[in-house]
């Protein structure tokens, strides 16, 4: 059984079809790169997986449970970093993580152990009691990541985890993802293709809500749909796939 399974997922906002019949699975140990240009429907798909918005059609199951039928169960199994890593600016990272731990029902020594674990993993020990407001962008992102891994979830959904970070910070976040990968099913959305080569074990490409190609590393590069890309050359392949995509969603709009 796949840890995460998406079946025929669609989401319409009025006349806009943001996500159009998307299906994929993610198994334990996989880091799936969810690629697509801006407005492709990546965030919308992730919001439906996280149970924040409900699909217009199709469904999501997490560890075999349906998100629509057992939302509390699936939410408990997911760690989610929303786009832009929102956090409460007036809180300290410690207060924020304690809140998330409480909301996730963690108690006593386990609560403390899980917070310590998350703090150590994203290395925010020295800013724990500083208001989040005053932290740099990189540290705010780390606080968001700490919240997502706090309960050691089997499924991690990270929406543009490295967006807006400097190269060193990007490197650190990727290291973190790689470290956590073995026991989990991880989905990261991005439009940065070097990221795919750096951390992903598999990738899917969507544009205008539609799934266009699936890819994985092969001998000497990446195979993305029908295209082969040498290391560092995924950009050209990505352009070929997404620019040549049928624009049905926009015509419908």
């Amino acid at each position: 059984m796949s840890l995460l399974e998406i079946r025929g997922l669609s989401k319409r906002f009025g006349p806009i079809t943001a996500v159009d019949n998307v299906s994929f699975k993610v198994d334990q140990g996989e880091v799936l790169g969810f690629l697509g240009p801006n407005g492709a429907g990546k965030s919308t798909t992730m919001k439906m997986i996280a149970g924040f918005i409900s699909p217009s059609a199709g469904g999501v199951s997490v560890l075999g449970e349906d998100v629509a039928e057992a939302p509390l169960k699936t939410k408990a199994a997911i760690g989610y970093l929303p786009e832009g890593a929102p956090t409460y600016p007036d809180m300290t990272p410690r207060g924020f993580l304690e809140f998330v731990a409480d909301a996730r029902g963690l108690k006593g020594p386990e609560r403390k152990a899980r917070i310590d674990y998350a703090v150590e993993h994203v290395d925010i020990g020295h800013v724990l009691d500083q208001s989040i407001d005053t932290l740099s962008k990189g540290y705010k992102r780390r606080v968001g990541l700490a919240q997502a891994i706090l309960h050691d979830p089997p499924v991690l959904i990270l929406d543009e985890p490295t967006d807006g970070l400097d190269p060193n910070q990007k490197h650190e976040v990727r290291e973190l993802i790689r470290r956590m990968a073995p026991g989990k099913a991880i989905v990261i959305s991005t439009h940065i293709l070097e990221e795919v080569e750096a951390v992903c074990t598999r990738a899917i490409v969507i544009a205008r809500g539609r799934l266009l190609a699936e890819g994985h590393p092969v001998e000497g590069g990446w195979q993305l749909g029908e295209h082969f890309a040498e290391p560092g050359r995924l950009d050209a392949v990505f352009r070929a796939i997404t620019m040549g995509a049928p624009s049905s969603a926009q015509e419908a709009a």
């Binding site: 924040f52 939302p71 509390l72 929303p82 929102p86 600016p89 998330v100």
Partner: peptide, 14 residues
Amino acid sequence: KSGTIELLMSLPVS
């Protein structure tokens, strides 16, 4: 406004 509602409502809370 700050988008934290997304974080809040994806926690296992009713």
